[in-house]
Amino acid sequence: MGMPNRKYADGEVVMGRWPGSVLYYEVQVTSYDDASHLYTVKYKDGTELALKESDIRLQS
């Protein structure tokens, strides 16, 4: 078993793309699913969504 190939840690605050949009919002990573390679993130309004790594970026 190798290390999970994840870029962002639980609790890390990053920018997540809103689905169907080009806009990124501040989100907190809450979990990562090794099987689906999706991150569960929480937006400031409390919305929780699963995002692909390509829809997440570090805060500038």
Rank of each mutant, 00 (worst) to 15 (best):
G2E: 15
G2S: 04
M3V: 15
M3P: 15
M3Q: 15
M3E: 15
P4M: 09
P4D: 13
N5S: 14
R6C: 05
R6G: 03
R6T: 03
R6W: 03
K7P: 04
K7E: 04
K7A: 09
Y8H: 05
Y8I: 04
A9L: 11
A9C: 09
D10Q: 06
D10G: 03
G11P: 02
G11S: 04
E12A: 11
E12R: 04
E12T: 09
V13K: 11
V14N: 00
V14K: 00
V14F: 02
M15Y: 11
M15A: 05
M15H: 07
G16I: 15
G16Y: 05
R17A: 04
R17K: 11
R17T: 03
R17W: 03
W18S: 08
W18M: 09
W18D: 03
S21T: 14
S21E: 07
S21L: 05
S21W: 03
V22D: 15
L23P: 02
L23N: 10
L23V: 13
Y24K: 01
Y24P: 01
Y24Q: 02
Y25F: 12
Y25R: 10
Y25L: 10
Y25P: 01
Y25K: 09
Y25T: 08
V27M: 12
Q28D: 02
Q28V: 15
Q28I: 15
V29H: 00
V29A: 00
V29C: 01
V29K: 00
T30P: 00
T30Q: 13
S31Q: 08
D33T: 03
D33V: 02
D34V: 08
D34W: 06
D34H: 08
D34K: 06
D34L: 06
D34R: 03
A35W: 09
S36T: 14
H37T: 10
L38M: 13
Y39P: 01
Y39Q: 01
Y39W: 02
Y39D: 01
Y39H: 02
T40C: 10
T40A: 07
T40E: 06
T40Y: 13
V41G: 02
V41E: 03
V41F: 00
K44A: 11
K44D: 07
K44L: 11
D45T: 04
T47V: 08
E48G: 03
L49H: 14
L49C: 10
L49K: 08
A50V: 14
A50K: 15
L51K: 00
L51A: 02
L51M: 10
K52M: 11
E53L: 04
E53K: 02
E53G: 05
S54D: 13
D55N: 05
D55P: 00
D55M: 06
I56D: 01
I56G: 01
I56L: 13
R57K: 13
R57Y: 12
L58I: 14
Q59G: 13
S60A: 13
S60V: 12
S60R: 11
